[in-house]
Write a protein that binds this DNA or RNA. Sequence first.
DNA 1: GTGGTCTAGACCACT
DNA 2: GTGGTCTAGACCACA
Lengths: 126, 126, 126, 126
Amino acid sequence: MQASWNDNQPIYRQLRDKVIASILDQELKEGDALPSVRQVSADFQLNPITVSKAYQELVDEELVEKRRGVGMFIQSGARNRLLTKERSQFLEHEWPLILERIERLGLNVSELFENATGKSQGESNE
Amino acid sequence: MQASWNDNQPIYRQLRDKVIASILDQELKEGDALPSVRQVSADFQLNPITVSKAYQELVDEELVEKRRGVGMFIQSGARNRLLTKERSQFLEHEWPLILERIERLGLNVSELFENATGKSQGESNE
Amino acid sequence: MQASWNDNQPIYRQLRDKVIASILDQELKEGDALPSVRQVSADFQLNPITVSKAYQELVDEELVEKRRGVGMFIQSGARNRLLTKERSQFLEHEWPLILERIERLGLNVSELFENATGKSQGESNE
Amino acid sequence: MQASWNDNQPIYRQLRDKVIASILDQELKEGDALPSVRQVSADFQLNPITVSKAYQELVDEELVEKRRGVGMFIQSGARNRLLTKERSQFLEHEWPLILERIERLGLNVSELFENATGKSQGESNE
DNA sequence: GTGGTCTAGACCACT
DNA sequence: GTGGTCTAGACCACA
């Protein structure tokens, strides 16, 4: 479990994104506890405030709930809400930009996708 | 020619990206002069320093050359170098992440594929 | 600690050169923090942006690393990389020109040599 | 006869330096005419104003004299005045900095000079 | 606390 | 005309 932070984005956001990915991948299921701030800050050598900030964002997005004195837990319905929101975000805002970029680079969309389907219909691409 | 700046990235970087897109799209050809710092700063209501910073990045990336007292010009070979660099950047680093994201969101690859090819093999997607 | 800026070169570059000299002289060791931008800008009565620009150059040269929200630090290996690079720069590009200049001025190589060795093999020439 | 301009110094100054080197090397002797501004500007693809500026500096330094309608000529005594001035400039200001740099880089002055004397006592080092 | 960005306006050097 | 540098001062994001 080692971290490699990207310089283009704030660490707290990258942390948030990790949690979100875990929810989508069902590594973290609804009702599960998040690892404690102190735990994460030790594991990743981060300032606890940074971790808190990531967690607070998840609370604000209503994906996680804080139970005082106990910890932070994935809210029920979190995954579905996430899926809905992120899918529309992707389709409406990200995908068009990706297509534009592909075309600008003179790449062949079909080929990219053939490799893609080959890959993702197999096992897993991670 | 109006500006619409995104708040997530510094303006000078967005400006740089615009020039790069223009090179790729061949709106700016090799040997062409870039619009002068003053021109751009007037057009977009920006501080000249902000524009300078964008241009300086392009010089550092060897896409643009400065002719002292004269102006800035697209270097010869700039487009090819850009294409090579950006394509490998895209294929090696961006596309895998995009596929991961698509899969994580449980999106239908075939549908995206059809829209994509329908769109980009047709006329234009702008 | 007082400044005396030379007019032939931009201040930010002279500042950069100072830091580099400090690294070579081991006044700044690897892992050490650079004095903060604000600190330097107060000490030398400079605009913070000017200082930033000097520091940014050092980051670009991979001599210094930025830890976000914390400060700037001498990278490990910085001194060795510097020595290697500067030595070859000196031997290949500067020294030949110096010799050419000495000869053109009809100066006596042996005399320079004696002064030089007398000076630098003795104590210190500062 | 092709030019390769250094980016650190203004072109007009590099041009001036070339003339000075030619005087010291006695390629241009006292009384000789300098090549015309128009000639130089064509040869080196320079703006005539740039060439003029270089020549004007030489006039200001009393190394060259302008004869209206005729051209520019190396002044008598130019080489001696140059030698005196440049030698003291070198010994007082440049050489100490060079020694400092050599020492900072941990280079061996004697060795540098052995190669040097070996070289310059032979034919020519150009 | 750290560094990053931008503005407004001035002045300079180069061609 | 071109770009480069600097100041003064403000505001922001990050840890």
